[in-house]
C-alpha cells in the first residue's frame, strides 16, 4: 500500500482538480452529492484510524467535525469580507487548517482523560463529549445558538473536497504502515502485549485520537462552506453513528473498504429518495441485514472476523 499510496494520492488529487474545472457543466445536485462523498471519506477514513486501526471505539466523531466546522465558519464570517477574491483559496486553506487544529486540540482534551477507559465505557464517554460539544454550540449566542451560523461563502468545491480526501487517505495509510504506525495495530491487537513490547498504549491512542480529530475538523470546515449553514442539530450523535457505520461496513481498519463504504452510504440514501417515505426504513434495514450477513464488513476478510470472535477471556 505505502509504495503505491503517493502515486494514488497524486492521481486522485489531479483528477479531482481537473474535474472541478468542468464543474459548471455538471448538474448542481450531483455536484453536491459528490462533494458530500469527499467529506464523508475524510470523516470515515479519519475515524477508521481511531476505531479500526487502533481499536478504540469512539462515538463522538461528529463533535470534532462540529468544532472544526464552527471554527472555520466563524473565522470566515469575521474576516471573509476583507479578503480579496484572489486570496480566497489561501484564506480557505488557512481557516480549514485552523479548524483542524482547534479540533485536534479538543481531541487532545477529550482523549487524555477518556482513553484510559475501554470498550463500551470509552464509547459512551466519547458520545458524551460529542453531545456536550453540541450543547455548548447550541447555547453560545455568538455562535448562532440553536439557529446556527448562516451566510457562509461557498468556498468548497470538488477539488478541495477530493484533494483533502486524498490527503487524508494518504496520511492515514502512510502513518499506519510506517514503523511508528505499527504501534496502532499492536495496541488494537493486544494492549497488554503491546505495552510489554515497550509501546505506550495510552500515547498511541491519544495520537490516533488527535490525528483523527484534526481531519474531522477539516471535514467540518469543508462541510460548513459546502452547505453554507451550520446548525448544532447537524452534529448530533446520529451523525457520529453514520460515520461509525461506514467504518464497520467497510471492514474495520481496511482503508479501501472504508472509502467504498463511505461512497455507498452517501449515495444510497440519495438513490432511495425515489421511495421517499420508505427511504430511511430501507436504510436501517440494510444496516441490520448487512450486519447479520457480513459482520466482517463488506470488504473485510472472514479470517480476521473469526479471530476477533474467539473468546478472549
Amino acid at each position: 500500500m505505502e509504495r503505491g499510496a503517493k502515486r494514488w494520492f497524486l492521481v486522485a488529487a489531479l483528477a479531482a482538480t481537473v474535474v472541478s474545472l468542468f464543474a459548471g457543466q455538471f448538474n448542481r445536485y450531483y455536484m453536491g452529492v459528490t462533494i458530500d462523498i469527499g467529506i464523508n471519506i475524510i470523516m470515515a477514513v479519519s475515524l477508521n484510524l481511531i476505531n479500526g486501526h487502533t481499536g478504540q471505539f469512539s462515538l463522538g466523531h461528529a463533535g470534532f467535525m462540529a468544532v472544526g466546522g464552527y471554527t472555520a465558519a466563524k473565522l470566515s464570517l469575521l474576516f471573509g469580507a476583507q479578503i480579496p477574491p484572489a486570496a480566497a483559496p489561501v484564506f480557505f486553506a488557512v481557516i480549514l487548517l485552523a479548524g483542524g487544529l482547534v479540533a485536534a486540540l479538543s481531541g487532545l482534551a477529550v482523549g487524555v482523560p477518556s482513553l484510559r477507559l475501554k470498550g463500551d465505557y470509552l464509547a459512551i464517554v466519547t458520545l458524551g463529549f460529542g453531545e456536550i460539544i453540541r450543547v455548548i454550540f447550541q447555547t453560545t449566542e455568538s455562535l448562532g445558538g440553536a439557529t446556527g451560523l448562516t451566510g457562509l461563502e461557498r468556498y468548497t468545491n470538488l477539488a478541495w473536497a477530493f484533494v483533502l480526501a486524498a490527503l487524508t487517505v494518504y496520511v492515514v495509510s502512510c502513518l499506519v504502515n510506517s514503523t511508528y504506525g505499527r504501534g496502532f495495530i499492536a495496541v488494537h491487537d493486544d494492549e497488554v502485549a503491546a505495552s510489554a513490547m515497550g509501546i505506550n498504549p495510552t500515547k498511541y491512542k491519544v495520537v490516533a485520537f488527535v490525528i483523527g480529530a484534526f481531519f474531522a475538523g477539516i471535514a467540518g470546515g469543508l462541510y460548513a462552506h459546502h452547505k453554507l449553514v451550520l446548525k448544532p442539530d447537524g452534529f448530533d450523535f446520529m451523525r457520529s453513528i453514520e460515520f461509525v457505520v461506514m467504518v464497520i461496513l467497510g471492514g474495520m481498519g481496511k482503508t479501501a473498504g472504508v472509502i467504498l463504504a463511505a461512497v455507498i452510504l452517501t449515495v444510497l440514501p440519495e438513490f432511495l429518495r425515489g421511495f421517499a417515505d420508505y427511504r430511511m426504513i430501507i436504510y436501517s434495514l440494510l444496516i441490520i441485514i448487512l450486519m447479520v450477513a457480513r459482520p466482517q464488513g463488506l470488504f473485510g476478510s472472514w479470517k480476521t472476523a473469526r479471530k476477533q470472535a474467539a473468546p478472549t477471556a
Binding site: 471505539f57 470498550g119 464509547a123 453513528i241 461509525v244 457505520v245 464497520i248 474495520m252 436501517s284 434495514l285 444496516i287 441490520i288 450486519m291 447479520v292 459482520p295 472476523a305 476477533q308 470472535a309
Partner: peptide, 13 residues
C-alpha cells in the same frame, strides 16, 4: 460474533 457487530445491529434496529 464480535460485540461491535451486535452494537451496530442494535443501532440499526
Amino acid at each position: 460474533r464480535p460485540k461491535l457487530t451486535v452494537l451496530i445491529t442494535a443501532i440499526g434496529v
